[in-house]
């Protein structure tokens, strides 16, 4: 367990949401401390992505509070939440398909631009300097993700694995403190999964991130997460270190059915 002395970066307290009578997430609690890498797992339809959508403001919780760095996030719009230092990727990749790789990442930098609409039409000195600064940042980001040679390509034309990487790069361009990754290894082969694990660990150190990760690939989750939360039917059924989760009978039941226990 993490030290209780530090303040949690993200805190969800008894958050619930239902869709037409179905409780998708039921009094969900989560504390995430700075520098942690936590996994959120559970069978299909357990409500993992819904938790992400609650945190990022896509859905409004029907009950409960969400705090980020002590600030209440309830009622904020997704873009305001992103501006607080919270970025995400999507389970079903949501890139700006017709735009280039570079433009995809640049859009995520937009919230750091100071120039007004008129300033950006006039393109004065301040704007050009800003543009150059952001351009440099993007170049190095794309380099890290091995996408620099592809910066002029259309995002929709990239192979699947690179699209997933581009989504992470794009999320990082918003300069987040907390990164939410929704199944980053989906569709990857074991070799790619290993590379991705290394990359996640590396960016966590390099950008001083806290990461919350949804993943189906147990190899990945067990390999890099310090703590794991297991969700089933919208409720937290287990919580602990990877080795504890591995042995938890409730988790095994949720994944494999009752007979397997």
């Amino acid at each position: 367990m993490p030290p209780n002395t530090s303040e949690p970066l993200l805190e969800l307290a008894t958050c619930s949401i239902s869709f037409g009578g179905l409780k998708a997430v039921d009094s969900f609690n989560l504390q995430l401390f700075p520098g942690e890498l936590v996994g959120l797992i559970g069978p299909n339809g357990a409500g993992k992505t819904t938790v992400f959508n609650l945190i990022t403001g896509v859905y409004k919780p029907s009950a409960g509070q969400i705090r980020f760095g002590g600030k209440l996030l309830n009622g904020k719009k997704p873009y305001q939440i992103t501006a607080c230092g919270l970025a995400r990727t999507f389970q079903n990749i949501r890139l700006f398909g017709n735009l280039s790789v570079e433009e995809n990442v640049k859009i995520a930098c937009h919230l750091h631009y100071q120039t007004s609409l008129f300033g950006s039409v006039w393109k004065g000195k301040a704007y050009r300097e800003e543009e150059a600064r952001q351009h440099q940042k993007i170049e190095s980001l794309l380099e890290v993700f091995g996408l620099k040679q592809l910066s002029r390509e259309k995002a929709a034309g990239l192979p699947y694995g690179q699209q997933r990487r581009l989504e992470i790069a794009r999320a990082l361009a918003t300069d987040p403190k907390l990164l939410l990754l929704d199944e980053p290894a989906a569709g990857a082969n074991p070799q790619e999964s290993r590379e991705l694990m290394a990359l996640i660990r590396w960016i966590k150190e390099k950008f001083k991130l806290t990461i919350l990760l949804i993943e189906h690939d147990m190899q990945v989750v067990m390999g890099i997460c310090e703590r794991i939360l297991v969700l089933d039917y919208g409720e937290t059924i287990a919580h602990g270190k990877p080795e504890e989760i591995r042995k938890d009978p409730k988790v095994i039941e949720a994944y494999l059915g009752e007979e397997a226990v």
């Binding site: 990022t56 896509v58 719009k77 997704p78 873009y79 992103t82 501006a83 970025a87 995400r88 999507f90 949501r94 890139l95 700006f96 398909g97 017709n98 735009l99 433009e103 859009i107 995520a108 937009h110 919230l111 794009r170 999320a171 361009a173 918003t174």
Partner: peptide, 14 residues
């Protein structure tokens, strides 16, 4: 352009 391409992703990117 980002609004045209994907509103939800655009919001998520700030």
């Amino acid at each position: 352009l980002s609004v045209r391409e994907d509103e939800i992703a655009a919001e998520a990117m700030g």
